[in-house]
């Protein structure tokens, strides 16, 4: 047996609903957001979604080594984490 029985993964119907929700969300995005000349605050480096990527990667590697969960923000990254 390669798979634990308790797995709870989205059913095909749930996947379809999620897909439709994402599509609607994307469509809805067209009407929100500032005008190009209102991007002054967003242009600041600290407002970038990945403002400090190196520090984030370091944090993620520490948590990857100490906790059962990893990834989410980006790919989990390699290594043994055997300590």
């Amino acid at each position: 047996m390669r798979r634990m029985s308790k797995a709870c993964w989205p059913s095909r119907r749930t996947e379809l609903v999620l897909l439709l929700a994402c599509g609607s969300l994307l469509g809805g995005c067209a009407s929100i957001g500032p005008k190009p000349w209102q991007h002054d605050l967003m242009a600041q480096p600290a407002m970038s979604v990945s403002a400090y990527p190196l520090q984030t990667a370091i944090d993620d590697h520490i948590y990857f080594s100490k906790e059962a969960s990893s990834g989410g923000r980006s790919f989990a990254g390699g290594g043994c984490g055997c300590n």
């Binding site: 005008k35 190009p36 000349w37 209102q38 002054d40 967003m42 242009a43």
Partner: peptide
């Protein structure tokens, strides 16, 4: 604000 924003939109985010 508008001028800074326009410049920012060119510089890229």
């Amino acid at each position: 604000t508008a001028a800074t924003g326009l410049l920012a939109s060119v510089q890229g985010h």
